[in-house]
Design a protein around this nucleic acid. Structure first.
Lengths: 103, 103
DNA sequence: ATCATATTTCAACAACTCTTGAATTATAAT
DNA sequence: ATTATAATTCAAGAGTTGTTGAAATATGAT
């Protein structure tokens, strides 16, 4: 992964509302959640939640699928894993000083 | 770690120059690098490098110590580890779907 | 067709980020 | 004291981000 892409992904995680969204989706599991429920769970207006979901989607952290009137969002773990790998391997050269955090 | 702090740390990583700085410091090892060398290595003016170093310092990713006329910067792995832990554990609930990325 | 629900998109605005180049601070050498 | 080196700080300006509430789009029910 190139630095610009990693930077854009970190940018997508640089907001407390968006971190809450990811947490909610992780907890929800493979079923995911629709936009309205997400908005309620993170305490945001529909418009605000939509804005943050779009940011997460653009960075690839969530996927979306229409289900009748709702849009169902799910988390993409592989994308989070890719960013973790970038930080550990590309950025930190797999330093042994980081080892403890993965046991 | 609370979400706001994690978000601020991700924000500090959301810039390609700053990621380059961290990479340079990781490669340099415990000796660290002074500001001028860092600026040269990432291809930034002294002022620009200083700005990004301040951002990394505020987020705790680097530490700084004066050495004669130079300021020597070193990377703080424990801080990076803390953020990795937040993402894996607090945010992703140690999901098995993330396991592969730490082998 | 009309209406209700679910969500996004838009425009306006305030706040923040980044870059640039000049000025400033701190240290050391002559 | 003066000068040179190393780095930060500052002010101005361009661009980006996030919030709000209203308007628009998409789907489904009556």
């Amino acid at each position: 992964m190139i630095e610009e892409e990693a930077a854009a992904m970190f940018q997508a995680l640089s907001n407390a509302d968006r971190l809450k969204v990811i947490r909610a989706l992780v907890t929800a599991g493979p079923e995911g959640l629709n936009a309205g429920d997400i908005a309620q769970m993170v305490g945001a207006t529909p418009s605000r939640a939509s804005f943050h979901l779009a940011a997460l989607s653009k960075a690839g952290f969530v996927q979306v699928e229409r289900q009748s009137r709702s849009l169902r969002y799910t988390v993409d773990f592989s994308r989070i894993g890719a960013l973790l790998s970038f930080l550990m391997t590309d950025c930190c050269n797999d330093s042994p000083q980081l080892k403890y955090c993965c046991t």
